[in-house]
Write a protein that binds this DNA or RNA. Sequence first.
DNA 1: TATTGTTATACTCTATAACTATA
DNA 2: TATAGTTATAGAGTATAACAATA
Lengths: 173, 173
Amino acid sequence: MTNHDQNCPNPDYPEKGHPLRMAKTMRSEAAEIVDLGELTKHLGYLMRRAQIWVFQDFIRTLATINIRPAQYSVLTVINANAGMTQMSLSKALGIERARLVHLLNELEARKFVDRRASKTDRRSHALHLTAKGRSALADIKSLAQEHEQHLADRVGRKNHQLLLRLLACFASG
Amino acid sequence: MTNHDQNCPNPDYPEKGHPLRMAKTMRSEAAEIVDLGELTKHLGYLMRRAQIWVFQDFIRTLATINIRPAQYSVLTVINANAGMTQMSLSKALGIERARLVHLLNELEARKFVDRRASKTDRRSHALHLTAKGRSALADIKSLAQEHEQHLADRVGRKNHQLLLRLLACFASG
DNA sequence: TATTGTTATACTCTATAACTATA
DNA sequence: TATAGTTATAGAGTATAACAATA
């Protein structure tokens, strides 16, 4: 019996097994009993496993529109802060500015984002969503909500809210 | 005011700022106000930020012994399941077997781990910690506990326990 | 035929350093 | 001198595919 069976409202949601790790040829279903030792007492281990689970569900749920978590976060924050600079976006999301360049190149190539000349500082760019970007974001948000519902189904609505509150301790601090 | 201020027992532990992201030259401390939009309602976003925080604290706390989270998990599970195969370890930790080869090569080069011939299946290896590996793991566990205490200090002891329970829903499932 | 360990490749993301053009 | 954006490189980590030895 694995650790979560006692506590998870719906341990098998959305189907048996890890979202993207369904073995192609599963001859022996016998899941070996492996002792994880101290690992299950470490928040870091559980967070890593949980984060992989969540991101894979996100990627799968938004696969039709081909948006990954990092891209979603960039679009969302630009939408909420039109005209912001790359440095500001980089700091807000904790994404290295060098990495952000590539993310923005992709989103600009897809005509979701505009880099406009700043009026006050000619070193920096003012970031804006295009009309196409705003339209796409509406669809993306809808799918992202669907994804979030998967998580709430998995862990329970109250626990979902609780996790949001508890994890905020580590964000940005 | 950031999101976690109301809820975190000790929002500034262990010092101001992110563990490894202290700017080298911080002229203007004025943290710009950036609206994160819907992101703070997404478990995935908060998990990613939290996981980065936690892993960076782990890496820093165990820097003297030069052990990273993935290496720690491998040593711990081999210790608890002497003689296990690489496939079994790969499945238990959710690490691709191709990736595990490199991890084990490193740990074998450091004389922490032995790959012995299996007695029952000549395709597979039986994994064991060496005497040096067991000795090192004792020190490593002590530092890992210190790291875990940092997390408990950050989020509060009761919340720490709560998080362990809630996140287990996503692990392994 | 399928599985174990291995090698190799591609892609995402992190971490740096260096460069340019501005400030 | 310092900062914004860019380019480049190195290293984790993930995801695949293919191969040899073995089952």
